[in-house]
């Protein structure tokens, strides 16, 4: 082959590649532009929180550049982690979240199985009804719930208000409908022959659920778990309404109520508390991310 032919060939393929890679390059440029824009937008608050948490109170109130730490200090972290109150908030949050997640899964997985697989009178209507429940905003729900608890206390003498464990009754009103709905979707994507095969193999409903459906729909189950955990960990309105004394508070409410004294904002510790509070969901996300992504897309195609 002559060198001319080689150059011609190269030029030919080069041109072809160019036209394709030009499109691709533009697509990439736009993608990067928007991705960076969004990343900046969403990362700015936590970065600001991190910067502020490393400052002393004096530096925060000083008129220096708010985006720079001149005298970094871990005093906020030491004080907060050493405070017994913060430990109680953290413990309450952890207990509430763990129990709520467990409770939610124990209710919504069998519920979803029943609604998606056992044909009974009104099951389709009920499935829609479950989802509609989720659409009612919590701001509408907490007043009647509060009233119900007060009435319950009047009738039975059992105190429900200002008890951290009452949140175990309240949070599932948010988590159960949504998780049930997610799981109905996952279970519906499992071919019907699979439970028929299990039925013939001798499995009862419960065994079909535990040995076939739950393993097969594991990504969906993890997605639902993450959702339930996030909701119960970050919930603010309900604990604000239902709990008041400091030993009953959960993290989000506790930070606000104890670190804001009148009109004095302890910004350094507020930011530290919020950052530390965001850590557990972050860690869980990091561990389950692969499953979570698979879970979000698994229902898209049958396979």
């Amino acid at each position: 082959m002559t060198s001319a032919a080689i150059t011609a060939g190269k030029a030919g393929t080069g041109r072809k590649l160019n036209s394709m890679s030009r499109d691709r390059a533009w697509a990439l440029r736009w993608s990067y532009f928007f991705l960076i824009l969004f990343a900046l937008f969403f990362l700015t608050p936590p970065i600001y929180m991190l910067i502020t948490s490393l400052k002393s109170s004096a530096e925060i109130s000083a008129a220096t550049n708010p985006w720079w730490v001149y005298a970094p200090t871990l005093s906020n972290y030491k004080e907060l982690l050493g405070s017994s109150q913060y430990q109680i908030f953290f413990r309450n949050s952890a207990l509430v979240s763990i129990f709520v997640v467990t409770l939610t899964m124990l209710i919504s997985v069998p519920a979803a199985f029943a609604l998606s697989r056992m044909k009974f009178w009104g099951s389709a209507t009920l499935a829609t009804g479950v989802f509609l429940t989720y659409l009612i905003p919590e701001t509408l729900l907490f007043l009647p719930l509060f009233k119900m608890f007060v009435t319950f206390t009047e009738l039975t003498g059992i105190e429900l208000i200002n008890r951290w464990w009452v949140l175990l009754l309240v949070y599932p009103t948010l988590t159960v409908p949504f998780c049930t709905w997610i799981m109905i979707g996952y279970f519906a994507s499992i071919p019907k022959e699979l439970d028929e095969a299990a039925l013939i193999d001798g499995a009862g409903w419960f065994q079909t659920l535990t040995r076939i459906f739950i393993p097969v729909a594991l990504p969906g189950l993890i997605a639902a778990t993450i959702f339930a955990f996030t909701v119960s960990w970050a919930q603010f309105l309900y604990p604000l309404a239902f709990t008041t004394s400091t030993d009953q508070l959960v993290l989000p409410v506790g930070i606000i109520t104890t670190l804001i004294k009148g009109d004095v904002f302890n910004w350094g510790q507020i930011m530290t508390g919020a950052l530390l509070g965001a850590a557990p969901p972050l860690i869980i996300y990091a561990f389950l991310m692969d499953y979570y992504i698979a879970g979000l897309t698994a229902g898209a195609t049958k396979g």
Binding site: E193, L194, A197, P215, V216, L218
Partner: peptide, 9 residues
Amino acid sequence: FQNYALYPH
């Protein structure tokens, strides 16, 4: 079954 219905996991 027609679609085999094997347990995928």
